[in-house]
């Protein structure tokens, strides 16, 4: 993992995380700290899954 690819990976993860966190904000009705925390966690899981899926498909 050269620094450049690590940076690219982090950028992709961050991009997916921001998009999914925004989607979470749209989905929920009331906004409070606990909801945001759970949303951040789920968005992270979604971002990791998105990146793993892209690598699995392009890797083949």
């Amino acid at each position: 993992m050269t620094p450049r690819t690590a940076l690219l990976a982090a950028a992709e993860l961050l991009g997916w995380w921001v998009a999914l966190a925004l989607l979470w904000l749209v989905l929920i009705s009331t906004v409070d700290p606990l909801e945001l925390a759970v949303g951040a966690g789920s968005a992270l899981v979604g971002a990791l899954a998105a990146r793993a899926a892209r690598r699995a498909v392009t890797g083949s």
């Binding site: 997916w16 999914l20 989607l23 979470w24 989905l27 929920i28 789920s42 968005a43 899981v45 979604g46 971002a47 899954a49 998105a50 899926a53 892209r54 498909v57």
Partner: peptide, 13 residues
Amino acid sequence: LLVLPVALLSGLY
């Protein structure tokens, strides 16, 4: 590839 994370997030929601 686009809908997979969205559906996963909806499931968690």
